[in-house]
Amino acid sequence: MRRSTSVPLGRSYLALAALATTGGLAACSRQQQTYCADQNGVVVPDARCDDGSPGHYYYTGSYGRGRSPGYRLSGGSRVSSTDSIGRSNAGLPSTGHVANGTTHSGGFGSGSKGSSGS
């Protein structure tokens, strides 16, 4: 008689699979921060994105809050500060001021709008 080599799935395996799934979903809804930066990703005062200066962009990603001018951002996405459609698609107001460090929900499938400072 031949013995089965299959291993039954125990409760610990199922709990681990549930935990991994939950962690993956949490990563999809991370908080995103937006900063005004130059073409090299270096944070500049947010007023530079307000005045339509060429070469200034809004960078959005999981950067954390409190990034000061001079901090170099990496990763995330960027949109020209003067591109109203791109801003709207990125979850930012299509016009107006967006304060450095503005937080909004982001990640896969996010359709929420960001908040802006005044």
Rank of each mutant, 00 (worst) to 15 (best):
R2D: 10
R2N: 09
R2G: 04
R3E: 04
S4V: 09
S4C: 08
T5P: 01
V7C: 02
P8H: 06
L9N: 08
G10V: 12
S12F: 01
S12H: 05
Y13L: 12
L14I: 13
L14D: 01
A15W: 07
L16C: 08
A18N: 02
L19C: 10
A20Q: 03
A20P: 00
T21F: 13
T22G: 07
T22F: 14
G23P: 00
G23Q: 12
G24E: 05
L25G: 09
L25E: 10
A26T: 15
A27D: 08
C28S: 04
C28P: 00
S29K: 08
S29N: 07
S29M: 09
R30N: 11
Q31V: 15
Q32D: 04
Q32T: 15
Q32S: 08
Q32R: 06
Q32G: 03
Q33S: 09
T34G: 01
C36G: 03
C36L: 04
C36N: 04
A37T: 06
A37I: 08
A37M: 04
D38P: 05
N40H: 11
G41W: 09
G41T: 12
V43P: 00
V44Y: 01
V44T: 15
A47R: 13
R48F: 10
C49D: 11
D50H: 09
D50Q: 13
D50P: 00
S53A: 15
P54G: 01
P54W: 06
P54K: 10
G55M: 06
G55K: 07
H56Y: 12
Y57I: 10
Y58S: 00
Y59E: 00
T60Y: 00
S62N: 06
Y63L: 00
G64E: 07
R65S: 13
G66K: 03
S68R: 11
P69Y: 09
Y71P: 00
R72W: 05
R72V: 14
R72G: 00
L73E: 07
L73N: 05
L73A: 03
S74L: 02
G75P: 01
G76R: 06
S80P: 01
S81H: 06
S81D: 12
S81M: 03
D83Y: 04
S84Q: 13
I85H: 03
I85D: 08
I85R: 13
I85Q: 11
R87E: 13
N89D: 11
N89I: 07
N89P: 00
A90Q: 13
L92V: 14
P93I: 13
G96H: 10
G96V: 11
V98R: 11
V98A: 09
G101H: 01
G101R: 01
G101D: 02
T102Y: 07
S105I: 14
G106W: 05
G107V: 07
G107A: 02
G107R: 00
F108T: 10
G109T: 10
G111Y: 04
G111K: 12
K113T: 12
K113E: 05
K113L: 08
G114F: 07
S115T: 15
S115M: 04
G117P: 02
S118D: 09
S118K: 12
